[in-house]
Simulated assay, not measured.
Amino acid sequence: MSLWQRPLKKLQAIAFNRTYRFRLNSLKGFVSLFLVGTVLSVALAACSGGTGSNSSSETPTASPVAASKDNVELTLVSFAVTKAAHEAIIPKFVEQWKKDHNQTVTFKQSYGGSGSQTRAVIDGLEADVVHLALAGDTSKIEKAGLIQPGWEKEVPNNGIVSKSVAALVTRSGNPKGIKNWEDLAKDGVKLITANPKTSGVAKWNFLALWDSVIKTGGDEAKATEFVTKVYKNVPILPKDAREATDTFAKQGQGDVLINYENEVILAQQKGEKVEYVVPDVNISIDNPIAVVDKNVDKHGTREVAEGFVKYLYTPEAQQEFVKLGFRPVDETIAQTKEVTDKFPKVKTLGTVADLGGWEAIDKKFFADGGVFDKIQAQK
C-alpha cells in the first residue's frame, strides 16, 4: 500500500467507528453510515486510480502520442531493391510533413530479402511500416497478430504501392543468345537467381518461369518439367536479389540473371553497361505496403506512419518510383509518354490471382516438401 493510501484507510476506519455509534435501527443512522462509507470508498478508488480500462497501466496500446512531440522516428522495414527509391522519397515526405505538421520525422531503415525481413519483424524487429516483395509476406505478419486484417483496404490499389516485371540480364553481346524463358533451359546456360526460401524476388522469378508455360498453353506437368530443367542450370542460390546481382555482376558467375526490371534500370542509371531482355510473357510483380498496427500503437506513431504510407501513392512519390525503374501503380502516370517510352510493352501479363493467391502458392510451391523442394532434390 502506498503512503498516500494509508491515511485514507485510517480515516475510513475512524469514520466507520464513529458512525457505528448511531443506532442502526434508526433510519438516520443507517443513511449516515451508508453515505460516509460510500463517499470514502469512492475517494479511495479515485486516488488509487481504480482498475478501470482508462488507467494507462491497464491499456497495452497506451503510449505517448507522437503527434505531441517535436520529433518522431519511424522504422521502415523493406525488401532490398526498394532502397534507392525510399532514399529518394523519404526526404520529400519529411519536408512535406514538416511543412504541414511542424514536426520533424526521422527514419530507421532496414533492407534485405523479403522473407528474411518478414521473419525479423515477426521475431521482434519493431517496424512501423513494412514494404515487402509480396502480399504473402505481409499476410504472415498479419497472422502473427502484428497487423490488423483488412490492411490492404486501408490504402489504394489493394495495398500495392510499387510493381515491376521480370527481366533477363545477359553478358555483353548476349553470347548465349538469350531471348526468352525457354532459352534458360538450354544445355550450357548458367542461370543466377536468388533462393525463394529467403527472397521474395526469387519467388516471383520462379512463378514467372512456371507461368510462362501455363500462359502459352502448357499444363502443370509441362511446367514442372521446364522449371526443373531451368533450376538444374542454377549453380548457386543467393539469399536475396541484391546478393544475386552481386554474384552475377561483381563475381562474374553465370550467363544470365533473372531480376526485377527496376534493378536493371537502376544499374544503368548508375552508369553500368547492362544488357537485358523483358520477355513479352511475364508476371506482374506487385509489392505491398502496410502499417504494423501493434508497433505503431506501442510507439505512438500511427498518424505519421499512415501519413507516410499515403504519401507513397502521391504523384510525387510515384514519379520517384518510375525514375528508379518501378512501373507505376497510378494509371494516369502509367499512360504518360515518359512511362510508355521507358518500359517495354508486355503482351501477356500473369498475376498471383491467376495462380490461386499467395496462400495457395506458398503451400504448393514453397512450403517444405513443395514443388520447389522436389525440384531441388532432382539436381
Rank of each mutant, 00 (worst) to 15 (best):
K337G: 08
A43H: 00
S284Y: 05
A317I: 10
G29F: 05
G124T: 04
G145E: 03
V329M: 00
I285G: 04
Q148R: 08
K197L: 08
G356V: 00
D293G: 05
F16C: 10
I375H: 08
D100Q: 09
E58R: 14
K28R: 12
K10D: 14
G271W: 12
V65T: 09
Q251N: 14
S53L: 13
T351P: 00
T228E: 07
G271A: 08
T138S: 02
G200Q: 02
K345R: 11
K163G: 12
V274T: 11
F308E: 06
V94M: 15
L184K: 04
F326V: 01
G188C: 05
F321H: 01
I236N: 08
V230P: 10
S56A: 12
H86Q: 12
G145L: 08
E243G: 05
E154H: 01
D286C: 10
N205D: 14
D246I: 07
V277L: 12
V39F: 15
V121L: 05
L266A: 13
S53P: 10
E126A: 11
A144N: 05
K337T: 13
K323M: 04
D341C: 03
A144K: 07
L146N: 08
V65Y: 15
K108A: 04
D219S: 07
R302A: 10
V277N: 13
F308W: 03
I265L: 11
E263N: 14
V77T: 13
G218D: 12
I141W: 03
K239R: 11
F366R: 09
N205S: 12
S199F: 09
Q318P: 06
L134H: 15
F22G: 10
S110Q: 11
A167M: 07
P344V: 03
L74N: 09
L40Y: 04
Y311N: 12
A45Q: 12
K363F: 01
A305E: 05
P7G: 11
K345M: 07
T106W: 00
A249H: 15
A15R: 01
Q5S: 15
D70H: 09
V296D: 06
V274A: 05
E87I: 00
A43Q: 04
P328T: 14
A194T: 10
K229C: 09
G112R: 05
D123I: 01
T19G: 06
K310R: 12
D255N: 14
A45W: 14
F372R: 04
E320S: 11
A305Y: 07
I214F: 11
L146V: 06
S68M: 08
V31C: 02
P196F: 00
P149L: 06
N174M: 06
F248I: 04
I122W: 05
S116Q: 12
K364L: 07
G200L: 06
S164C: 11
A267N: 13
G150M: 08
Y311A: 15
A46Q: 09
I90H: 05
E338M: 02
D330C: 08
V213R: 12
T198H: 01
T216R: 11
V155E: 00
T351C: 03
V42C: 09
Q5V: 03
W151D: 05
L27Q: 02
I285P: 02
R327W: 07
V346K: 04
A133D: 10
Y20D: 15
I14W: 15
Q5R: 13
K163F: 10
T301A: 01
G112C: 06
W181F: 15
K153F: 13
V256K: 14
G49I: 07
V155M: 00
F365N: 09
V130P: 13
Q335T: 15
K364D: 02
G188S: 06
A244Q: 03
K298R: 15
